[in-house]
Amino acid sequence: MNENQSFDGAYFEEERSVDVVNSRMGEAGEPRLKDVLAVITKHLHAAVKEIEPTHEEWFAAIRFLTETGQICSDWRQEYILLSDVLGVTMLVDAINHRRPSGATPNTILGPFYVEGAPHYANGTNICLDAKGAPTLVRGRVLDIAGNPIAGATLDVWQTNNDGFYDVQQKGIQPDYNLRGLFAAEADGRYWFQTVKPRFYPIPYDGPVGKLLKAVDRHPNRAAHLHFIVTAPGFEQVITHIFTPDCPYLPEDAVFGVKRELVAEFRTIDDPALAQDYGMPCPFLLVDWDFVLAPAR
């Protein structure tokens, strides 16, 4: 037998490419990382074998990834955006937030969350630029048995009527416009004034935006309000409320829409109810309950 035959399994071959690459990992490596890398290698090689890219196509992919990294900064993460538009962010979120039936589902946090929003009393208007259709959002925070969760915190934020978050328009919008923290009352109820959200585009002036254009995909997110709902002893919920009439509802750019998160925005022409809540008449009303699962 030729002395080199015993090493045949170590040499690269197209048919055995995955086994050859994965066999190079040693016994002392970090177990979880080795498992993850082995799976990624398996599926990456399968994709390359199915696509059979030319050298020019492969280098185009390398340039795309290089440009994606180069545009990243302290305030912009293009790789997260890439994960978003490929549906990976939502998939990871779904895997990590499997909840009992009836509990409010999660969706993505998004890049425009800001810590330190003002604490407001229930009923406060968080719209500081006076733009948009006046909207009252009210409801309860409950456990899965239907019991109120007193003192639950609701952290709220959204775009203004022009489709921008305050942090995107420093010096144009007031700081903390359309942001606020509220606490549920003893009976679990909360309510606040805002305006109807509108759709807006994700950043599309970089490599991810060029990718969307190249495959004929738009960059728009369906109109929504963001919420983070927390209470001691319960799993945190990061979620949205979507408007039912947004044209991008069935094709949200980052796949953030879930059927259970589409709300009803009712037009209310009731002067007495408007007076009770300090709203102009008519106004839009959203009734929405959040249901929290016990902490795991």
Rank of each mutant, 00 (worst) to 15 (best):
T54K: 07
C246R: 05
A150M: 03
N220G: 03
Y200N: 15
A183Q: 14
P294C: 07
T89V: 06
D205Y: 06
C246M: 11
T243S: 02
A38F: 01
Y204E: 13
I238R: 14
E185I: 00
S73E: 11
L44F: 10
I149S: 03
G188C: 06
I71T: 15
G123V: 03
K42Q: 14
K131V: 08
P53D: 00
T239C: 12
E30R: 05
D289A: 04
D162L: 03
D93N: 15
G87K: 09
Y204D: 12
D143Y: 02
A223R: 02
F283N: 10
G132C: 06
T104W: 00
D205Q: 10
V254T: 13
Y190W: 06
I202L: 15
W288L: 04
A47N: 07
P282E: 04
V20A: 10
Q169Y: 08
Y113T: 13
V254N: 12
V21A: 09
F255W: 10
I62A: 01
E14P: 01
D19S: 13
I149Q: 05
E235M: 07
A28T: 12
A295S: 13
L82N: 09
E50R: 11
T54G: 10
L178S: 10
N160G: 15
T243E: 05
F12T: 11
Y200V: 09
A186M: 08
D129V: 04
D74I: 07
P207H: 00
G209D: 01
F227C: 07
S6D: 10
T41K: 06
C72S: 15
G278Y: 05
Q168D: 15
F182E: 03
R217Q: 11
L37R: 11
Y165P: 09
P201G: 07
A295N: 08
L136R: 06
E78V: 05
I108H: 11
A103N: 07
W288C: 00
A222I: 02
I71D: 06
F59W: 05
D270L: 01
A186S: 11
R198E: 08
F192C: 03
L154A: 05
R76H: 15
D93R: 14
A121H: 13
S23K: 08
V114Q: 15
C127P: 06
G180N: 05
M90A: 11
H119G: 09
L273W: 02
A272R: 11
P207S: 11
A130C: 10
W157P: 05
V257F: 09
G29P: 03
A133N: 12
Q70P: 00
M25V: 15
N106A: 07
E57T: 13
H97K: 07
A253Q: 09
A47L: 05
G102A: 01
D166K: 04
K34A: 03
V114K: 15
D166R: 07
I149F: 03
G146S: 10
